[in-house]
Design a protein around this nucleic acid. Structure first.
Length: 191
DNA sequence: AGAAGGATTCTCT
DNA sequence: GAGAATCCTTCTT
């Protein structure tokens, strides 16, 4: 099995961590292993970032130490997975927007209601059976609640960048940043 | 206490 | 391509 990425691996700016996460593996103790194929970076002074209007109970993990989880409910339906980057006190995170299944396909199929495509952050959350109660917890292979780990996997040879999705509310300068990272050469999109 | 709005997805057409 | 589903967080009276 791959070596886990230590917490300080995430102690870098989010736009640097995000492309480096492509090809890495998300591992759950139930045997589900996903390969990350699409990410987005969010930073401080970024009007697309949930933390840009100050710290709140929900967004507190974004201000915390690297290598922790930030999970929130989107549109009342979807649980979205973020990995906190940068040092404690500095806002930064990477949204996991898409994956492919490495292991545990039957489990994912059950959780996804018969489907196995994981293009889109809500689908990833469903495949991992994310719980917002995990938000703020550290990554680790074995823990009572947030039993989620990120391992080395196989970094990708090629990726391309695009503007981030679903952040029309942000300032134009932030909307235009090429902070969405997709594994492989230019091909399909997530929506 | 009330209201607004979303880092989305699915199902139609 | 358009519209509904759905509920929590946050901001405003």
């Amino acid at each position: 099995m791959d070596a886990l990425l230590p917490a300080d691996w995430f102690d870098r700016p989010a736009p640097e961590v995000a492309p480096d996460l492509l090809g890495r593996h998300l591992e759950l103790p139930d045997g589900v292993v996903l390969r990350i194929t699409e990410t987005e970076a969010y930073t401080a002074y970024d009007t697309a970032c949930h933390a840009n209007k100050g710290i709140t109970p929900r967004t507190a993990p974004l201000f915390g130490p690297p290598g922790h989880l930030y999970i929130y409910l989107c549109y009342g339906i979807h649980r979205l997975l973020n990995l906190v980057t940068d040092s404690e006190g500095t806002v930064g995170c990477v949204l996991i927007r898409g994956c492919t299944i490495v292991n545990g396909r039957p489990t994912v199929r059950t959780r996804r209601g018969g489907r196995t495509d994981l293009r889109g952050p809500g689908k990833v959350g469903q495949a991992l059976a994310l719980d917002v109660g995990w938000s703020g917890m550290p990554l680790a292979r074995v823990r009572p609640l947030a039993s989620l780990g990120v391992s080395e996997g196989t970094p990708v040879a090629h990726h391309h960048t695009t503007p981030r999705i679903g952040i029309d509310y942000a300032e134009p300068v932030d909307r235009d940043r090429l902070w969405r990272f997709v594994a492989g050469k230019k091909r399909s999109r997530s929506r």
